[in-house]
Deep mutational scan, measured.
Amino acid sequence: TIDDAFRAIERAIQAENEGRYREALKHFLDGGEMIVTAAEKEASQKVRNLLLHKGKEVLEWAEHLAEWILE
């Protein structure tokens, strides 16, 4: 659900702030994927587009974090 997705993102932010970057990455990926999944089930085109945009933002952040971890 969207609530689960945002809880995962909150955990990711907390982990990132505490320097637990790999854990943060996992939570960002989980949250982003949950948002995209919820968007695919959404009946309203406007809400679907907003959710897809937010999911994409979260997944892009996860990608940047992963690249930073690997440096």
Score class of each variant (00 low, 15 high):
43 A>T: 12
10 E>R: 13
25 L>M: 07
40 E>W: 15
32 G>L: 15
64 H>V: 10
32 G>H: 15
55 G>Y: 15
34 M>Q: 05
7 R>I: 09
26 K>L: 08
53 H>Y: 09
18 E>I: 05
68 W>Q: 05
38 A>Q: 07
70 L>K: 13
47 V>T: 06
8 A>G: 00
64 H>S: 09
12 A>R: 02
29 L>K: 09
27 H>R: 03
30 D>M: 14
26 K>A: 08
4 D>W: 07
6 F>Q: 04
39 A>N: 03
40 E>Q: 11
52 L>G: 01
35 I>T: 02
3 D>P: 05
39 A>L: 10
7 R>L: 13
60 E>V: 08
25 L>P: 00
49 N>M: 09
33 E>R: 15
25 L>Q: 02
18 E>D: 14
34 M>F: 02
21 Y>E: 00
24 A>L: 03
60 E>Y: 07
19 G>T: 00
12 A>P: 03
22 R>Q: 13
67 E>V: 12
37 T>S: 11
2 I>Y: 10
28 F>N: 00
25 L>E: 00
37 T>C: 11
66 A>G: 07
51 L>Q: 00
51 L>N: 00
8 A>F: 12
43 A>G: 06
44 S>M: 06
9 I>D: 00
66 A>D: 01
54 K>W: 15
27 H>E: 05
42 E>N: 05
52 L>S: 04
26 K>I: 09
66 A>I: 08
48 R>L: 08
45 Q>T: 11
9 I>A: 01
62 A>L: 11
70 L>H: 08
53 H>A: 14
48 R>H: 09
39 A>R: 02
28 F>H: 00
65 L>G: 00
56 K>G: 03
8 A>C: 12
20 R>T: 02
53 H>C: 13
57 E>L: 15
11 R>A: 12
4 D>M: 11
23 E>M: 03
40 E>M: 15
57 E>Y: 08
38 A>N: 04
12 A>Y: 03
35 I>S: 01
18 E>W: 06
9 I>L: 12
39 A>K: 03
18 E>P: 03
57 E>S: 05
66 A>K: 12
59 L>H: 03
42 E>V: 13
59 L>S: 03
14 Q>D: 05
45 Q>W: 08
27 H>G: 14
1 T>I: 12
36 V>I: 14
4 D>T: 06
4 D>Q: 09
18 E>Y: 03
4 D>P: 00
71 E>W: 05
41 K>M: 08
22 R>H: 11
55 G>N: 03
3 D>C: 14
50 L>D: 11
63 E>Q: 14
26 K>E: 08
43 A>S: 10
62 A>H: 01
70 L>E: 11
61 W>L: 11
5 A>D: 01
32 G>S: 09
15 A>M: 06
5 A>P: 03
